[in-house]
Design a protein around this nucleic acid. Structure first.
Length: 300
DNA sequence: ATGACATTCTTGT
DNA sequence: ACAAGAATGTCAT
């Protein structure tokens, strides 16, 4: 069922000619999202948006809907303050039970099933010494994804746009400067295929993730993993949840330091007002991911 | 709506 | 040990 993992891929560009065009689509989609979020008060028409990216209105409509499962207008609503508030307002009854679950094996922590283990403090201090990281770039609905794995599981996931590969890789390597790195698309492709295709989100084959960070960071990331798809939590809520109600700002820093973006849903942390605040890989991408998730939910 | 400041943890000297 | 910074929050205009 996974023809994709068999494909020989040495350069991201070659994929663009593949039938999987979602990576190329994102270039367009990203521009449109950018325009929408900058000018949404003016209610930009589909026609205007299409003209901006040099497309026919109907073509853009089709492309955007195929990408997000949501029309541009629907998407606009999905990333509105109102909607984010609704996500926030909704319950957070997942406080204690999910935590235990997270420590003891596979659980429905994200709609993508993951098992995760934290590295010991000693391993963290070694900054990756003795670890072999295999990495590769793969097209995904949000541009290019840099996937990094160890033999213990997925350790890193970053995003970039075409041309930004080196910067993204440097960003990740800076986190574990003592690790060995080797490009190995054969190792990373299956991860990419599983992560970005909701059809492959299965409980019988959970994704293995290793969390490499300080105790504080790991506890924050654990909290993020407990936020289900289509929900969001304020930074201050997360702070409360991990027992440090006075440290929302430190939570923000820890969320931002998350090395496994998307899988650890750092995009589901929002400001207390429901406003979408920063994102390490670009605020537009955060909006794109949230809108895309909204589309996935609609599709069910 | 905007801006100053309070506050906690991480990280690099 | 210390100082600076961070994807915040709150309160006063």
């Amino acid at each position: 069922m996974n023809a994709m993992t068999q494909t020989e891929i040495t350069r991201p560009q070659t994929i663009l000619t593949d039938e999987i065009t979602s990576g190329a689509d994102y270039e367009i989609v990203r521009k449109v999202i950018e325009t929408i979020s900058e000018t949404y008060q003016d209610q930009p028409s589909l026609e205007t948006l299409a003209a901006d990216v040099g497309m026919e209105p109907t073509a853009l409509q089709k492309l955007f809907t195929r990408w997000a499962g949501l029309s541009p207008k629907g998407f606009l609503q999905a990333v509105t303050l109102d909607h984010a508030r609704r996500l926030l307002a909704s319950d957070l009854p997942l406080l204690d039970t999910a935590y235990e679950l997270g420590l003891s094996g596979p659980g429905r922590l994200h709609d993508l099933f993951v098992t995760h283990e934290a590295m010991s403090p000693g391993e963290y201090k070694a900054k990756g010494l003795g670890l072999t990281m295999r990495y590769g770039f793969h097209v995904c609905p949000f541009g290019l994804a840099l996937v990094m794995t160890t033999d213990r599981g997925l350790a890193g996931l970053a995003f970039c746009d075409p041309g930004g590969e080196a910067a993204a890789l440097a960003d990740m390597q800076g986190r574990w400067p003592n690790a060995d790195y080797s490009e190995d698309l054969t190792a990373t492709a299956p991860y990419a295929a599983r992560i970005f295709n909701p059809a492959n989100w299965r409980s019988d084959q959970p994704l293995k993730v290793v969390l490499i960070g300080t105790d504080f960071q790991v506890s924050v990331w654990n909290a993020l993993l407990q936020i289900p798809m289509g929900k969001a939590l304020a930074y201050s809520d997360i702070a409360t949840k991990i027992g440090r109600p006075d440290a929302p700002r430190a939570v923000g820093a820890a969320v931002g330091a998350n090395p496994v973006s998307f899988v650890v849903p750092c995009h589901r942390a929002v400001g207390k007002s429901g406003a979408l605040t920063g994102y390490h890989w670009g605020l537009t991408r955060k909006k794109a991911i949230l809108g895309w998730e909204a589309g996935q939910l609609c599709a069910e």
